[in-house]
Design a protein around this nucleic acid. Structure first.
Lengths: 245, 245
DNA sequence: CCCTCGATGCGAACACTGTACGCAGAACGG
DNA sequence: CCGTTCTGCGTACAGTGTTCGCATCGAGGG
C-alpha cells in the first residue's frame, strides 16, 4: 500500500482536547436537545444540527443514543422531572391535584413540544422520572381515599394533556409567526369571523370573549384552563363522597 | 428551431384518457391520503407514495394542494364529518354529550392519526366540517342550559382528545408490532413490571387489572374511557344545577 | 516501554423526504 | 388557426435518519 506523504509533526497541528469541552456524553446530548426543542420546536431538531451545536459529527451521536426516538424518550423523561406533584399527606386533595395540574401546565408551556409527544407515548415510556411522576399521582389519589385511583388519574391526566397540547401548539404558532399573541389574533380575526359567521353559537361565543382575547390573551388562557379543571375536580369530588357501589 | 423527427401518428400511440381513471382532483387526493393514513399511519404518508397510488407524479399533487400540511388539514376536515353529535333538542343532555364523546372515540380509533393532529391543530383548522362539529357541540350545551358552554366544551373535548390520543397511539403500536394486543402486552409485561416494581401504587394498580388486560384488552379500554368520561359528566352536571355564581 | 484492544469520533454514502422550476401537451375561447 | 390557460411531470435541491468502515486515542498488560 502507498505510504501517504508524512505530515510535518507540529505541536500546533496536534489537536489538544479543550478541557472545558465536556466531551460527548448521553447527558450532554439530551441536555442540548432539550435546549433546541424549547427554542425551535420538534421539527427543527435534527441529528446533524444537534451534533453541530455540540462540535461533533452527526454519526458520533449514535455512539450514545440508539435512535432519534430514543433521544426523544430520554428528553421527555428528563423534562418530566420538572413537574411538581405535592406529597400525599392527605390534607387537601383538591388543592394538591389542582397544584399538580397547574405544574404540568407550566412545564408544558416551558417545553411546548412535551404534550403531544407525551400524549402519543402513553404507556410506552418507562423512564424513571415519568414512573415516579405517575407514582406520586397515584399516591395522592389513594391517600385522598378514592376507590378507583386509576380512573381518577385517567380523567385529570387526559384533560391536562389535551388542554396543554392545544395551548402549546397555539404558542408555537405564535412564536413562529414572529408577532405578538394579540397581534396574531388580530391578523387571524377576519378568517375566524368568516368561518364562524354561518354558525350562530360559535359566532356568539367568540364575540363574548373578543375583548379579553385581544387585551390579555395569556390571562384568558390560564382562566380557561382553570375553569375547565374545576369541572373535572368537581366530578372527582362526587366520586369521593359516595364510596358505595 | 430544429424540426424534431415527425413521429408516425397512430391511434394506438396517442394517449387516450381512461374514463374510469377519475383524473387528478383535490377530492381524489384527499380520499386516497386518508386511505393511506388509516392503513399505515402518519409517517408512512409521503407525497411520492401518494402520487404513485394515484398513477401520477409527485409534482402533480401540488397543482391541487399547496403543501402537505394543507393536505393534512383537508384530510382532518374530511374525517371530522364522521363524528356524530346528537341534535340539540334538549331532551337528555347527558346522554347526548356521552354519545358525542363516544362517537369521537370510535372515529378516532378508525383513523388513529386523527387525535394528535387535531390536538395540535387547536384553533388553526377552520374547515367547514370541523366548524359545524363545534357548532353542534355548542348548540348542545347551550340548549341544555349551561351558563358557560365554552368551558364545558373545553372540559369534555380536552378529555376526549387526550384519552383518544394515547389510545390511538397504543393501537398504532400494536398494529405495527404485528402481534395481537394481548400478545404484545405479554411481551411488554416484564419491562413494565421491572419499571413499576419500585413504585408501590403503580405495581398494585397494574396487578389489579392484569387479568382483565390480558383477557379482553379492548373491553377494558372502552370501560376506562367510559368511567373517566362519567367523572367529567358529573362535574358538568354540578355546573348545570347551580346556575348562580 | 511498546503494543494491543476496546471505546469513541466521524466522513461518506444510502435511501428517503417536501417542494420549486420550467417544460410539454391538452383544452378552450376568439 | 392562434394564443392563453390549465394540468401533469421529469428533474433538481436541500435536507433528513441511519449505517459502514476507517482513524484515533486512552488504558492496561506483557
Amino acid at each position: 500500500m502507498a505510504t501517504r506523504p508524512t505530515p510535518i509533526p507540529s505541536v500546533w497541528a496536534r489537536p489538544q482536547r479543550e478541557p472545558d469541552q465536556p466531551a460527548l456524553s448521553r447527558a450532554a446530548i439530551v441536555r442540548e436537545a432539550i435546549v433546541m426543542l424549547d427554542a425551535e420546536g420538534v421539527e427543527a431538531l435534527s441529528m446533524r444540527k444537534l451534533a453541530t451545536r455540540l462540535n461533533a459529527g452527526a454519526a458520533s451521536l449514535y455512539r450514545h443514543v440508539a435512535t432519534k426516538d430514543e433521544l426523544m424518550e430520554l428528553a421527555v423523561d428528563e423534562v418530566a422531572a420538572e413537574i411538581h406533584v405535592p406529597s400525599a399527606d392527605g390534607a387537601d386533595w383538591r388543592a394538591a391535584v389542582s397544584e399538580a395540574a397547574r405544574s404540568f401546565r407550566t412545564t408544558a408551556l416551558r417545553h411546548p413540544w412535551l404534550p403531544p409527544v407525551l400524549g402519543q407515548a402513553g404507556l410506552a415510556y418507562l423512564g424513571p422520572n415519568l414512573m415516579s411522576y405517575s407514582e406520586r399521582l397515584a399516591a395522592l389519589f389513594t391517600a385522598a381515599g378514592f376507590p378507583d385511583p386509576g380512573t381518577a388519574i385517567d380523567a385529570v391526566l387526559s384533560y391536562v394533556i389535551g388542554m396543554s397540547t392545544t395551548e402549546a401548539a397555539w404558542l408555537t404558532t405564535v412564536s413562529r409567526s414572529g408577532d405578538s399573541e394579540s397581534g396574531l389574533i388580530a391578523r387571524l380575526l377576519p378568517a375566524v369571523q368568516q368561518a364562524t359567521a354561518p354558525h350562530s353559537h360559535l359566532a356568539q361565543g367568540y364575540a363574548e370573549t373578543e375583548e379579553a382575547v385581544t387585551t390579555d390573551p395569556a390571562a384568558l388562557r390560564e382562566a380557561k384552563f382553570e375553569a375547565a379543571l374545576e369541572i373535572v375536580l368537581d366530578g372527582l369530588s362526587l366520586r369521593l363522597e359516595a364510596p358505595g357501589s
